[in-house]
């Protein structure tokens, strides 16, 4: 009994197994897997048919400036705002996080593993979207590829921060999906998901542009057509990260 127990934290092997486990959880949740990957492709096709053959609408290259940014933003927003918090909420409700806290694993490991899996899923979704656009709609890579990747990364962080906020305030997995979807559609509707923001009342469009979805669409669009970034969009996303994270940290509970 007097022998000492060495401190041991789960190592890289354990992390790899946990990430693989979370990936299986996501992959076996059919709707959570398919919707974020399929919806953007659907958006591409619908717009492809709508704008059929027209490269530009009122002088703006539609696909690069508008359709691609919306499709890719849908991928990262769907995964970050709807899917990830529903998993965390389910883990909390079913006391999986509590069960893990009785092992040498920290429940925060699960959170990190979910984010990693979400990022991988987002990358896959983005690659599918871009590949489909390049193959069928003759869309090229962004003019400023580095800026586009950086902006997408920032947007993904923003969506995860909002997802953490959703996980923190949702009392149950169902509530989490509901809250996530409401936020997703509210941000999407004001940010150009259902059509160019020029069709929205001007004040709504102005607000939508600095909300995370709209800011991401504008910033990615700028990078795609080779325009300079507008600081407002980047600051808006950074602010959303700070506010969401701060609230999430205050309110997040590991226990149901």
């Amino acid at each position: 009994m007097t022998e000492t127990v060495p401190v041991h934290r789960p190592g890289p092997r354990s992390w790899a197994i946990l990430v693989a486990a979370e990936a299986k959880m996501v992959a076996r949740d059919t709707s959570g897997l398919v919707v974020p990957l399929g919806l953007p492709v659907l958006i591409l096709v619908m717009n492809g048919l709508a704008f059929g053959g027209e490269d530009a609408y009122e002088g703006i290259p539609v696909f690069e400036r508008y359709v691609m940014p919306v499709a890719l933003t849908i991928v990262i927003a769907m995964i970050g705002v709807v899917n990830m918090p529903s998993f965390l909420s389910y883990y909390r409700r079913t006391k999986i996080l509590r069960r893990l806290s009785a092992t040498p694993a920290n429940p925060a490991m699960v959170l990190a593993a979910q984010v990693i899996v979400g990022i991988v899923q987002s990358v896959i979704g983005v690659v599918i979207g871009v590949a489909a656009a390049m193959a069928f709609f003759d869309v090229g890579l962004p003019d400023r590829l580095g800026a586009a990747l950086a902006v997408l990364g920032l947007a993904a962080l923003t969506m995860y921060a909002i997802g953490m906020f959703v996980a923190a305030i949702a009392p149950s997995p169902n509530a989490s999906v509901a809250i996530g979807l409401v936020i997703f559609f509210a941000l999407g509707a004001t940010g150009g998901m259902f059509g160019p923001t020029g069709n929205l009342p001007r004040p709504v469009a102005a607000v939508g542009e600095v909300l995370p979805f709209g800011a991401s669409v504008q910033a990615v669009g700028n990078a795609w057509v080779g325009a300079d970034q507008s600081p407002a969009h980047l600051i808006a996303m950074a602010a959303a990260i700070i506010v969401s994270t701060a609230i999430a940290i205050r309110l997040f509970r590991w226990d149901a």
Binding site: T4, P6, V7, A21, M25, K95, I96, R99, P104
Partner: peptide, 20 residues
Amino acid sequence: ARLRQVLGVQLQDAYVHGAL
């Protein structure tokens, strides 16, 4: 951290990852 290595726990109503 040390205790977690040597104490096994079965909780009353805790669930595990259902799809695994």
